[in-house]
Amino acid sequence: MKHLVRAGGVLIAILFVFFVLLRVIPVPESFNAYGFYREKENTAEWAARPMAYADPILCNQCHQTNHGSWSDSKHKTVSCENCHGPGQSHVDKGTPVKIDESREACAVCHSKLPSRPRDFPQVDMEQHGGKTECKTCHSPHAPAIPPVVLHPEAGYSNCLLCHSAGGLKPFPANHSANSPDSCTSCHSVKRSV
């Protein structure tokens, strides 16, 4: 047995050195402060992550007009940052927020899809409005159905943007025969800009 005891002694010495090395080298500094798995340290790290989307309460501090019309509109469930994008850097550093005003941006929610809840307002984008930007008729902050359309008062050509043949809402065929100086000589504008 003696020869084995001796061999065993040698091995145990080697193992001991090995383990001491292992123990000394990789132990992190935070071991003592945060315990074996250092979970609390990591939890604090996660809690301290920077935000991209700001506290929504902050928007109203500067943008009271839009906030006011939004806050009792049909879009009041849609947060500012839903359309305007993450705003923390806007709050911190005044970085301008960009907004996508294209038809596609509205279509993401409002184009007709069989998967959407029936009672959610949807339109067939191909049939509705041609290529006109949605905000021409629908105010994004206070939308209404039917839309309350803001009409610029000045100019004949302005009217034709929407009301010419093939436009969004073409005028009746008999109008062309009259050819008045301007539309407003007969029509009054309900809501002007």
Partner: peptide, 16 residues
């Protein structure tokens, strides 16, 4: 990092 500050998760925040 949001819920520990009393805010909603970003996905909840933006859900229209």
């Amino acid at each position: 990092h949001r819920i520990t500050k009393g805010l909603l998760p970003a996905c909840v925040e933006v859900c229209p």
